[in-house]
Amino acid sequence: MEQVAVLAVAAQLDRNYIREKTLEGQQVGAAKGNQGGRPKVIDDDSLTFALALQAKGDPVPEITQKLIIKEGKNAGKHPSVASVYRALAEAEEATAATQATDDLPQRPTPVRLHRPDEPLKAEEIGLRERLVVQRAVLDAEEVAPVISGPHRFKGGAPQFGAEEPGLPCSFGPGPTGLGYSGAKPSR
């Protein structure tokens, strides 16, 4: 039984050694510029040409027939339609990602809070005035739809929806004289 444990430990050490040497080789290759893996079928020149053809309106199967693989075991052949679709999708995602980072707002500058007894600077007074004006405009926009909504004035009291189809109630002096007439609320 002890012999099996010793062999298991030796096998584990061997696996760790192989793993370390593999990672070391990948790092040396990356330093030299080798990224490893399967080479791309559609290089940057072919992708630029494919994007231009797509912008012109050519369908992807026709674009595929106009492209030629430059290196690898399939050199001189046309790439598959799936490869062209994949390359076009990756290019679209890359442009969308760069545009998304360009559209992000800049980080706001930190604001120093003042104590009530500290005087404000001129720029802070201007900022406060602009904020007060913006708040007044927002408050006016919230109140405006209520005032200019669909209502009718009859007998001095507003009647909301009295003549509108599908609106069952109206406010104001109604047949009951209590100021409300219409459908009863359902529970």
Rank of each mutant, 00 (worst) to 15 (best):
A87G: 02
A87C: 04
A87K: 05
L88T: 00
L88S: 01
L88A: 00
A89R: 12
A89Y: 07
A89S: 10
A89K: 10
E90I: 02
E90H: 03
A91E: 04
A91K: 09
E92I: 04
E92Q: 11
E92N: 07
E93N: 14
E93L: 15
T95H: 09
T95F: 01
T95Q: 15
A96E: 14
A97F: 05
A97T: 12
A97G: 02
A97Y: 07
A97P: 02
A97S: 12
A97Q: 12
T98Q: 06
T98C: 02
Q99A: 11
Q99G: 14
A100T: 04
A100D: 05
A100V: 03
T101P: 00
T101V: 14
T101A: 11
T101C: 05
D102T: 13
D102L: 15
D103P: 00
D103I: 04
D103A: 13
L104G: 00
L104D: 01
L104A: 11
P105A: 11
P105R: 14
P105E: 08
P105D: 05
Q106H: 09
Q106V: 15
Q106I: 10
Q106L: 15
R107T: 06
R107I: 08
R107G: 01
R107K: 14
R107F: 01
R107H: 04
R107M: 06
R107C: 03
P108C: 00
P108I: 06
P110V: 05
V111P: 02
V111T: 12
V111F: 06
R112S: 11
R112W: 03
L113I: 11
H114K: 15
H114R: 15
R115L: 14
P116L: 06
